[in-house]
Design a protein around this nucleic acid. Structure first.
Length: 679
DNA sequence: GATTAGGGTTTG
């Protein structure tokens, strides 16, 4: 209390509120009671009047009040001071960007979010880039208030010398009321459970651990009591000096995320205290493959606070008692209880897993998390074109072709329903699509070929050694096996390619499990020949490889000697020397998408990428069939309403199809894959 | 005692 002139003690301000700020009695004055009361701050003697933002003039020093539209939390400038940039707007709907400096971090406005209300005193107005700009003049002071309508008008300031008058109070109330209808509410604060990749968010969280990674990057381990819907990355801390309770962090498992902050933020990060509550502004969330060279590897959420202060990037410590901190504390208290109940299951010892990622484990907590993730997050993601914006199906259906779109939709239904009907063969050259031949048909071709007696002159050549078997009770059918040599030497059976004459499918299947690969052949006039291309030209393990009847121009079997590596017998290499254009196994399905704006049918033709399952192997692998079934059950569940289906994110390419007079536009799915978590 | 930054995302 500082009193001049007559009188002393706590006074009652003009609005009747008890006022504990400094007042001056100017002695005998002009008021009816003989006193005039004026506001005085430690830095300003003049009464505090605020200039509306539409009446600012260059070269003046003013007091202004406004709603925060944008701000950069205080950061150390390259000079001597902290700097904060704040853009405000007032009832005149005029904006003003202010550049504020202070040696004292706390003297800059204590803004927590867009929508807060500030009063600046001693702001100099100048011109920058042809626009008015505010800059902190000597004696600058600021007052900050929460912008929420109805919340107590409480001054946020550590500077006890700044006065807060009833006039300020009224200004704040008026701005709050105006902002509630004229300024869009600040974007709801991010919770980790709502984190979508490829976005920037302000995250409110508690700091659990920290470590300097190198000179330009620093790791913060934080949590907010919710789980991300994608698994998140883990930065290796093995060789770093780590501060924080690691056993607690490990117990909380995937409630904790790793944030790496860079460059100018490293200094700030170093000074943060474990346990403190933070708001991290413009945190970048990326969904990245763990191994960046591969598009098929696991996808993880990464959290980066990039260098610089663009878009208000920065970190601010939130004080105890802050309403968002109180909410966060409540959330953390609830989760801690849940986590401790399953701590035995989820506890992960401190081992090399720190460097990898927490794998899903059997606890109820984690299973629940998986279910939730499948239901709420996109079950497929783009592998390319991630810059594209989503297009609603109704808009796509109105447009011509060819075009490409990114869509977010649900899989209402798909065809065919029987998985083995989804697998086809396609020629990469003529694009002809055909059915995978049935075992019965293949065996028929083999039977017909077996009626031709093997030529003894074609046995035992420089390319292969031959052995003859005569079957019993089958009309004396002869089976000849030609073992292909590697530089004149017979290789181990596991590396040996055999040619088989007169064999039936069941025999070939047995042999293919014993030898590297099998080629069914028959005796020709000059040389061994391949069979009809309706039969496989090569059987490797359980997979039959077929060639295109139209595009292949068969070459002599002896060409096998020209393959450089006679241990791998790569199907494409074998096909090439034999003049065969190999057919590719593909999943061919029709997906019916629905995004609420429209329904659209799209083809899926995919050899491996979409399901992360090789189409060539699914017909002969029970595990892969179960995987595919599981994926289809996740992306198109039965027995529940479509609302509960997961979203799919897909790239669609439209194309024109004309047959006779008829023209239609079709859509094909491309550059899309099922997320790792549901496989 | 002037300078700092001057809103508009890294490419880790």
């Amino acid at each position: 209390m500082r009193l001049l002139g007559a009188g002393s003690g706590t006074l009652v301000g003009p609005d009747g509120n008890s006022c504990r700020t400094s007042w001056i009695f100017k002695g005998l004055g002009k008021s009816a009671r003989g006193f005039s009361i004026e506001v005085m701050s430690s830095t300003m003697v003049a009464p505090c009047t605020y200039t509306p933002l539409n009446l600012l003039k260059e070269g003046t020093v003013v007091n202004v009040c406004g709603v925060v539209k944008f701000f950069k939390p205080p950061y150390l400038s390259k000079g001597t001071d902290y700097c904060s940039v704040v853009t405000i707007v007032d009832q005149t709907n005029v904006k003003l960007t202010c550049v504020l400096f202070s040696r004292n971090y706390e003297a800059l406005p204590i803004i927590y979010k867009v929508g807060d209300i500030v009063c600046f005193r001693g702001l100099k107005i100048q011109i920058y880039k042809n626009e008015l700009q505010g800059i902190s003049n000597y004696g600058f002071a600021s007052l900050t208030f929460d912008g929420a309508l109805g919340s107590p008008v409480k001054l946020r300031s550590s500077n006890k010398n700044v006065n807060f008058t009833s006039q300020d109070h009224n200004m704040v109330e008026a701005l709050r009321a105006w902002a509630s209808t004229h300024v869009p509410a600040s974007s709801t604060l991010l919770q980790l459970s709502d984190a979508q990749p490829m976005q920037y968010y302000d995250l409110t969280c508690q700091l659990l651990g920290k470590a300097e990674v190198d000179g330009v990057s620093f790791l913060l381990k934080v949590w907010d009591g919710t789980r991300t819907k994608f698994p998140s990355w883990r930065v290796c801390i093995q060789d770093l000096a780590f501060e924080g309770d690691l056993s607690h962090i490990l117990r909380l498992q995937n409630l904790v995320i790793d944030i790496v902050v860079y460059d100018n933020h490293v200094q700030v990060a170093k000074s943060l205290k474990i346990g403190s509550f933070l708001r991290i502004y413009s945190l970048h969330i990326k969904l990245q493959p763990v191994n960046s060279e591969s598009t098929t590897s696991l996808l993880r959420l990464e959290f980066h606070l990039h260098g610089g202060t663009s878009y208000g990037r920065g970190i601010r410590v939130l004080p105890e008692g802050n309403s968002d901190v109180n909410k966060l504390k409540e959330a953390l208290a609830c989760v801690d209880l849940a986590a401790s109940q399953t701590s035995d299951d989820t506890y992960q010892s401190e081992n090399e897993d720190n460097c990898s990622l927490p794998s899903s484990c059997g606890s109820d907590l984690v299973s629940l998390y998986e279910v939730e993730r499948c239901q709420q997050l996109c079950a497929t993601v783009l592998t390319e074109h991630r810059y594209l914006e989503n297009t609603p199906l109704c808009a796509i259906l109105k447009q011509g072709a060819p075009r490409q779109y990114r869509i977010r939709a649900k899989l209402r239904s798909y065809k065919p329903r029987r998985l083995f009907q989804c697998v086809k063969l396609v020629c990469p050259k003529c694009h002809l699509l055909q059915e995978v031949p049935s075992d019965e048909n293949v065996d028929k071709i083999l039977q017909v070929a077996a009626t031709k007696a093997p030529e003894s002159k074609l046995q035992g050549t420089s390319l292969y050694d031959s052995e003859i078997w005569t079957t019993e009770g089958q009309g004396g059918r002869q089976v000849v096996i030609h073992f292909v040599k590697n530089d004149g030497i017979l290789p181990l059976s596991s590396e040996c390619l055999i040619l088989i004459e007169g064999g039936r499918l069941c025999e070939i299947s047995k042999l293919s499990s014993m030898f590297h690969s099998v080629i069914p052949v028959r005796s020709g006039p000059e040389d061994l020949e391949l069979l009809d291309l309706a039969a496989p030209f090569l059987i490797r393990g359980k997979v039959c490889h077929y060639g295109c009847k139209q595009c292949s121009k068969l070459k002599p079997i002896q060409n096998l000697s020209t393959i450089p590596n006679k241990r791998l017998w790569i199907p494409s290499s074998v096909a090439e020397v034999l003049g065969i254009v190999p057919l590719q196994y593909v999943f061919v399905m029709t997906f019916t998408f629905d995004d609420g704006t429209g329904v659209l049918e799209a083809y899926l033709k995919d050899s491996e990428k979409f399901f992360q399952i090789p189409a060539s192997e699914i017909l002969t692998d029970d595990d892969l069939q179960r995987n595919l079934e599981r994926i289809m059950n996740v992306i198109c569940p039965s027995g529940i309403k479509i609302d509960a289906y997961p979203w799919l994110e897909c790239l669609l390419k439209s194309y024109n199809v004309r047959s006779g007079m008829e023209h239609r536009i079709c859509y094909q799915i491309s550059d899309t894959m099922v997320v790792e978590d549901i496989i």
